[in-house]
Amino acid sequence: MIELYILLILMIIGAVLALEIKDLLSAVIITGAVGLCLSAAFLLLKAPDLAMTQLIAEIVLVIILVRATISSDSRVEQSKRNHGTFVCVLISLSLFLGASGYVIAKLPIFGKPLMRISRTYLSEALFQTTVSNAVAAITLDYRIFDTFVALVALFTGVIAIMALSGPKSNNSNKK
């Protein structure tokens, strides 16, 4: 359990560094390190599927951000911060933490009423679907409609980016 806390502290330090550092490329790479620590934390919590997906999605995100950072001219952050923004962020953050603490105190104990369904899935999935990976059995058999809606959401994202980036002939004329 101590490794998990070490990873959590590393992630908090990395997130603060990524916000505060001036060089944008270094900030992108620190963001990737935070994602790597999160993937290791998922692996410690015995969720290898989630760790794999998190690792790959983090790499895709870092590649996109590196490409966006290299192609832009200003690699060093130039905007100055004033104290009013800092005070506003502090007030809203304390409000958020107070409200979430109030909500978390009212939540039921972790896994107490929900384990009735998931225990059935975990015990019956191998015999009902003959698939040895229980996560694949749940996401593609019991909860297949969620996966379908996730795919539709990704497809909608593709269509939205195609529509927002304008006509295709506009790019080829510039070259």
């Binding site: 290898p48 599927d49 794999m52 997906t53 895709v60 590649i63 990976n133 694949a136 059995a137 593609l140």
Partner: peptide, 22 residues
Amino acid sequence: HGHIIPGGGFAGGAIIALSLLN
């Protein structure tokens, strides 16, 4: 091998996209 080992369609597709992104 998404139904035998950890991974699955989403992770596999993202790795294929990563090779093209490289």
